[in-house]
Design a protein around this nucleic acid. Structure first.
Lengths: 119, 119
DNA sequence: GTAACTGTATTATTGATATAATACAATAAT
DNA sequence: ATTATTGTATTATATCAATAATACAGTTAC
């Protein structure tokens, strides 16, 4: 799986975002065990401490929980996952529309541009 | 004019973005003189050095030019402004659609969400 | 002509981030 | 029972970003 970490923003933030997306879009299955901190860090080619920091953030959000000597697990709370997915999408749409509006581009033009995109 | 500087990303980057948008959307008129570095810094409530750094970036892009003891001026190149505006919009759309697609949300749903937005 | 203002440069200090190198206690695996 | 693996914590170092405090030479304004 691709970990595209750029250096334009804090690495741990980018890790949180990538992990969150994988949980919300089902790449990581509800209730299953994650790779170990060290293995995840190896995959993403970051320092284990940095990955640990990202996982701590996800635990605060309730998206994962840790069993101290066994590993980190994806939450079982499917409603939480659905809700956060909806919330994230909503935020992205709001942010995007705000920027586009500020550029002085109309809704009609925006939808035309999106229709040209492949998805 | 509102300067909404958060502390989630480098301040000078946010200043570049805000100034660029103001030039591209016509808030700052082609060929006119900008406020002085110190006054702009005061308006945005940042350190003059930070504002200076942002202005240097804009000069690299060709959006402003400086007359050393007179002030900074918006470029006269209207085509450059039009082109950069189009490019920026295109980039925003691409980035947005990439994120939305990765969340597993369809184009149809996306357009419905955008239609609910006010612009 | 003098004073104020211009962009620009320099130096120092502080805080956040990333990495590195360990360490440890509890559990899982063998 | 021993070994390896787990999350977690600690300490140190390096780099980048932001601010602060000046400084200077060349206009511009009066």
């Amino acid at each position: 799986m691709a970990w595209e970490i750029k250096n334009d923003r804090p690495v741990y933030i980018q890790l949180v975002e990538e992990l969150e997306i994988r949980i919300l879009n089902g790449t990581y299955t509800v209730g299953t065990k994650l790779l170990s901190v060290r293995d995840l860090a190896g995959e993403a080619q970051v320092n284990p401490n940095t990955m640990q920091k990202a996982l701590s953030e996800l635990e605060k959000k309730g998206l994962i929980y840790s069993r101290r000597t066994s590993g980190n697990y994806i939450t079982d709370d499917e409603k939480l996952i659905r809700d956060l997915r909806t919330e994230l999408a909503s935020n992205e749409v709001g942010e995007f529309c705000g920027k586009i509006k500020k550029l002085g581009i109309t809704k009609k033009e925006t939808i035309e541009l999106i229709n040209k995109e492949d998805f």
